[in-house]
Amino acid sequence: MIVAERKSLEEIRRTIAPYERVLIVGCGTCATVCGAGGEREVALLHAGLRAMEARSGEGWHTFLEFTVKRQCDAEFLDALVDRVREVDAVLSLGCGIGVQAIAERFPTLPVLPGVNTSFMGMAKEWGVWDERCAACGDCRLAETAGICPITRCAKGILNGPCAGTKNGKCEANNEMDCAWVLIYQRLEKLHRLEDMRRYYPPRNFRVIPRPRRIVSKAEVAVGGNNG
């Protein structure tokens, strides 16, 4: 899933400054699971902004709250149509896709990000999120024992560890595991060490010209049942 972190109250306050009435919109999918922008976080942010404004004596904003099921899906944004009429801007706690989906849906409405979209990852333990996929468009996990060196190696290198690894950790961050040590250890358990001996040519960055688009309409049922 997509993992995000809420921006600081100070930064949010600066971005909403020009707008009197602000609708804080949460997202019921990834942003909810990672605790950055679900219904609960919308309410907490609302309370936080109010408290901050009260302290500073400049509390002239009006806040409304609403959380949609999925900000990145146009069909769920219909629920915002009536609500956005009453506001001057939307503060989205969805990921960067959510912010842009709302902006596309409402061409004359200012949409501001309330979170920093960080990465695609998973919960390592409660409250700890780790990046796992870089969406490189050319998955090599079959050859690297299911551990992604593009994402988990600080240098994203393909032919084995650099010399900076120490105690199984990365030279860029000694709290992070060296991806290539993990790959070696797992390949060894799988009796697949020969995979590491193979030469991996330079990556093909042509598979990720930005922005990317995938067209596969045939596999998507029209009108729903797609999650």
Binding site: A154, I157, A172, Y200
Partner: peptide, 28 residues
């Protein structure tokens, strides 16, 4: 050489490139 991580240097906010690694550079 692959090169040290930018995180250990004096321009920590720079974009790390690593388009190639040391093995790929030798082959190049």
């Amino acid at each position: 050489l692959t090169g040290d991580s930018v995180d250990v240097g004096d321009h920590k906010e720079a974009k790390p490139v690593f388009d190639l690694d040391s093995v790929q550079l030798l082959r190049t």
